[in-house]
Simulated scan of single mutants.
Amino acid sequence: MTDLRTDLHTDRLLLRRWRDTDLEPWAAMNADPEVREHLGAVLTREQSDASVARFEAEFDRRGYGWWAVEVRATGEFVGFAGLDEVDDGLPFTGVEIGWRLARPAWGHGYATEAARAVLAFGFETLALPEILAVTTAGNLRSQAVMRRIGMTTDPADDFDDPAEPEGPLRRNVLFRIAPSRG
């Protein structure tokens, strides 16, 4: 893979590769039932650490992935944001944007700010023709971020995640955005 720039900067945030010092706050996020409400069961420390190892391996392979998100003014790790290939088995393919923040970072506009930087990277650096976002039908906070960054949804694209049993995580909403021209 071509060596792409690895850090993304916004006014308040640094999206960067993962560090060993991120593992503990990341594990705390993944052990928080409120953070995991629309994602499934909380993760053990081992599962959380393994996810970072996968993120880094995918980043090395592709040149992009899930960046750790840090508040520039304080150096505090507050979550992740990035791009990933859509999981196999879903009724569509492409590249998906996503984010996850620790509860104390909610309500500060960080998800929107990070997502805008990720979209710019996806369209300007990777020249993607479209970026997707998926969340559960009940995750209104993430859907609000998707709308703020210009994504749109069509109810005809809503789907049941085949990997999820019946319940609140099964029904999902698909959002889309294409690069702006002009």
Rank of each mutant, 00 (worst) to 15 (best):
P25E: 03
D60Q: 09
P25Y: 08
L128Q: 05
V134H: 01
I177L: 15
L90F: 07
A127I: 07
W18N: 05
A144V: 00
E85V: 13
F175M: 02
T2G: 06
L8F: 10
R19G: 04
D32S: 11
I97E: 10
V95I: 13
T125W: 08
A127N: 15
D7R: 14
D32V: 11
A156N: 01
R72E: 07
E96W: 15
T2K: 13
R100S: 08
A144N: 02
L119G: 08
A156T: 02
G82T: 05
M29D: 12
V69C: 07
V42F: 02
A102R: 13
L128H: 02
T152Q: 07
S142W: 05
G79S: 00
D20V: 10
L169M: 03
V69W: 10
L83W: 08
G98N: 00
V71S: 08
T74L: 09
R103K: 15
V118G: 11
D84V: 12
E130C: 02
A53R: 12
R54M: 15
A28C: 09
R45A: 12
A27S: 15
V118D: 10
A111V: 07
I97T: 13
L140R: 14
R16E: 09
D158W: 11
F55R: 05
R181I: 15
D7C: 11
A156P: 03
S48Y: 01
T135F: 04
T93C: 11
W106S: 01
G138Q: 02
R103S: 07
F55K: 03
L8Y: 09
E113A: 01
A102M: 11
E166G: 07
A27C: 12
P129R: 01
R54V: 13
D49P: 06
T74A: 09
P129K: 00
A117N: 02
D158V: 02
W66S: 15
R16W: 08
A163T: 13
G79Q: 04
D11H: 14
A127K: 13
A137S: 11
V78P: 11
S180T: 12
P155Y: 01
G98M: 06
L15G: 11
V78L: 10
R100M: 00
S180M: 14
V69Y: 08
R72C: 00
E37T: 11
V118L: 10
G167N: 05
W99D: 01
R45P: 05
L128Y: 04
I149Q: 06
